[in-house]
Amino acid sequence: MKMNKTENSNGNKYIPKEIYNILRKQHYQIKDHSAVKLCGWVRKSLLENKNCYKSKFYGIATHRCIQCTPSVIWCQQNCIFCWRVLPTDLNDDNDKFNKNIYYKLPKWKEPEEVMNDIFEMHRTIIMGYKGILDRIGEKKFNEAINPKHVAISLSGEPTIYPYLDELIKLFHKKGLSTFVVSNGILTDVIEKINPTQLYISLDAYDLDSYKKICRGKETQWEKILNTLDILESKKRTCLRTTLIRGYNDNIEKFIPLYEGANTNFIELKSYMNVGYSRKRLNLDDMLRHDEIINLSKTVEENSFYKLEDDAFDSRVSLLVNENRRINPKIKFE
């Protein structure tokens, strides 16, 4: 059978060969349009008994978390801080990747198939640790092979997947909690979905900063603002701002947006110089943890958000809405 010109040697007809090979080199497990990658914190939890900031803030069992996406390369933005490979990172014909391949949508699989693909890919990854049970312990290994939490946040924009609402419900039916991280552009999807916790990435404070940082369009920024307007009606929400030195670290400019959205939580997190973001930004563009704390205190002093917690290793802080205070720790079943 003749292979499609975009199809790689593993038979994936949706992802350009060069991008697919890069993702595989970065240890992505990929099945059609979905992918799973072991979070570095899961590895640290298994081998060093260290937990991620989501465990500290929200009570997530780090070693029982799946980091996944139902739309691995499809996103409306090209954020300069994104760790994934972007068409503009490649030396090939970028215009070809952008117009003819990169944004061409796949034939989407049904949500139950996607869920099963995600479980299968996660199991494949975790089984690689079976050979070092003496280091991990059989109990922790068995817990990791039976996850209880799904972070739909790996790469791509999850709301592009047309059955995201159904996928979330299937995970919940299986007894797993869900965190969804979205760029907020598809407001109608945001209104529909009900994950355990909904994150909206808010990395710009106006149209100019949005074009510079997320490299998006004016119409997309307007849609993000529409999404901010509806977040108060959602049950458990968080705005996450990735801070880049000299780009968006004037935190006072975000405060009107934070208060207008009235989310339960805000996370302020330093940009991290990892993955393909190293082609676009430098180590000096990261903020120190003490700088994150100082910016958090500025938000605290000028809004109804109060600094609740922080995690040094991840250079991140958690602020809680005093007017809509809920316990950050989730009561998992």
Rank of each mutant, 00 (worst) to 15 (best):
T298K: 15
Y161N: 04
S209C: 02
T227H: 11
F171V: 00
R24I: 15
Y199L: 15
I73Q: 01
R64I: 01
K130F: 13
E191G: 14
T196W: 05
N282H: 12
P256A: 12
V299R: 05
G40T: 04
A61H: 10
L207K: 12
F179G: 02
S55A: 13
N8W: 06
G40V: 05
I292P: 00
Y276H: 15
L257F: 01
Y102S: 11
G216N: 07
E267S: 09
S177W: 04
D203K: 12
H122R: 08
R278D: 02
K25C: 06
S153T: 09
K104S: 14
D203W: 10
D208I: 13
N4E: 09
E112Y: 07
G275Q: 06
I168T: 02
L176Q: 07
L243I: 13
N21C: 07
I145H: 04
Y163N: 08
D117V: 11
F141W: 06
K140H: 03
E110Y: 11
S153K: 10
D188L: 06
C82M: 11
P328I: 03
E308M: 07
H27I: 08
T69R: 02
D290S: 11
Q67I: 06
M127A: 14
F265T: 09
E18P: 01
N273H: 15
K54F: 09
P111H: 02
Y129T: 00
E322R: 13
G246E: 01
C79D: 06
K192C: 07
D284R: 14
F265W: 02
N116I: 04
R240N: 10
E48H: 13
I152M: 03
P328E: 01
I126T: 06
T159R: 02
F97R: 00
R24E: 14
D165P: 01
T88C: 12
K5I: 08
H172L: 03
